Computed example of a mutant assay.
Amino acid sequence: MGKPDYQRSKNSWFYNLGLSSYNTDKHRAPVDGLYVKKTQIWKLRTLTSIKKMLGHTGKAIDVLKMDIEGFEWKVLDNLMETGELKLLRQFLLEFHLFPRFPPMHDYVKLYKSYTKLREEHRFLEFSVSPHEQTLVKERFNVQGDSQFVNSLFLYPSSP
Rank of each mutant, 00 (worst) to 15 (best):
F123H: 01
K137P: 04
H96G: 07
S158V: 05
H27S: 13
F98P: 02
E138W: 11
H121N: 11
E84M: 05
L87T: 12
P102M: 01
S113G: 14
H105M: 11
D77R: 12
L97D: 06
P102S: 05
T24L: 11
V128S: 10
L88P: 02
E94Q: 09
E94W: 08
D62W: 00
H121G: 04
R45T: 04
T39F: 05
F123G: 01
A29D: 05
N141S: 11
P156Q: 08
I61S: 00
G70P: 06
N16F: 12
G70V: 08
V142P: 15
Y111P: 13
S157T: 09
V142Y: 11
T24N: 04
F148R: 10
K26C: 13
F153I: 01
R89S: 00
R28H: 12
F153Q: 01
Y15P: 15
Y114N: 05
H27V: 12
D106W: 08
T115Q: 11
R8L: 06
G58E: 10
L79D: 00
S113Q: 14
Y111Q: 08
E94N: 11
T48L: 05
L85Q: 10
V36Q: 05
Q90V: 13
P103T: 15
M104F: 14
S129Q: 13
L47T: 01
V75H: 06
N78K: 07
